[in-house]
């Protein structure tokens, strides 16, 4: 651990060489030093050197834009592969995408412009100061109607409540309070997205039962499926 402890999915094929005129891109998303980032491998599988790389995003739900220029050595020679990291900012133009976390990307080089789309794991958009004040949490929990509460289950989870607390905290999901009621651990948690949406949660964990009950409360119901997936990914990986 240390440098990058947030849950980072394995790299996926974003642009196969067959669609990129020899350019292949594998990638994933992570979070480092308070910023989301794209972590990619560019490979030149063409028979000519590639130069002039640049990247652009279409408008997206969270206003993600590249935070710097793409750094690829020029030229990228035939058979050469290079790992590169692109820091992202969340201060760009916003347009709601379906699914919400969809991101359309354009990459250009001296040969052509290539397009692909991917989905951003929403946990890379959980900010470091997402710990809600306890008093505000209680008021907000009460304030959000039960129609805005969605329950789900996380199966096959073998973490203790302490392990879950620390693993979730490394991913910017903060435990505001915890109680043990009749042997069941109840964790009250908060997270905040880069666009200032708050999500409150309750985790019910029983040491004798690998199924965890997750209840999410937020005024922005749209984000719930992505948050449920993030909890699953973080707790099971």
């Amino acid at each position: 651990g240390g440098a990058s402890e947030v849950y980072t999915p394995p790299k996926q094929m974003w642009l196969p060489a067959s669609k990129g005129k020899g350019l292949e891109i594998l990638g994933t998303f992570s979070r480092k030093q308070g910023n989301p980032q794209m972590v990619m491998t560019f490979s030149n599988k063409a028979m000519q050197p590639m130069t002039g790389f640049a990247v652009q995003f279409n408008k997206n739900s969270f206003g993600l834009v590249p935070g710097s220029a793409l750094t690829i050595p020029s030229p990228l020679s035939p058979n050469q592969s290079i790992d590169t990291t692109l820091p992202l900012s969340a201060n760009g133009p916003i347009q709601r995408m379906d699914p919400l976390t969809n991101l359309q990307v354009a990459v250009k080089n001296c040969i052509d412009v290539f397009y692909f789309s991917t989905t951003v794991p929403i946990n890379v958009l959980f900010v470091e100061d997402g710990q809600m004040d306890r008093k505000v949490f209680l008021a907000t929990w009460k304030d959000i109607p039960s129609s805005n509460e969605v329950q789900s289950q996380i199966s096959n989870c073998n973490l203790s409540s302490e392990q879950a607390t620390s693993r979730l905290q490394r991913n910017n999901i903060f435990t505001v309070a915890n109680r043990n009621v009749d042997g069941q651990d109840m964790l009250y948690q908060s997270l905040r997205l880069t666009n200032n949406i708050w999500v409150l949660s309750e985790l019910k964990m029983n040491p004798d039962n690998p199924t965890v009950q997750l209840s999410l409360k937020t005024r922005a119901l749209d984000v719930i499926p992505s948050i449920q997936k993030a909890y699953n990914d973080i707790m099971l990986n």
Partner: peptide, 21 residues
Amino acid sequence: EDDDGDLDDCFSKLAESRSNP
């Protein structure tokens, strides 16, 4: 301190009200 105690109590009540019997 009293405020903290109240908050502790509120979380205990919340947890009790939501725990499965």
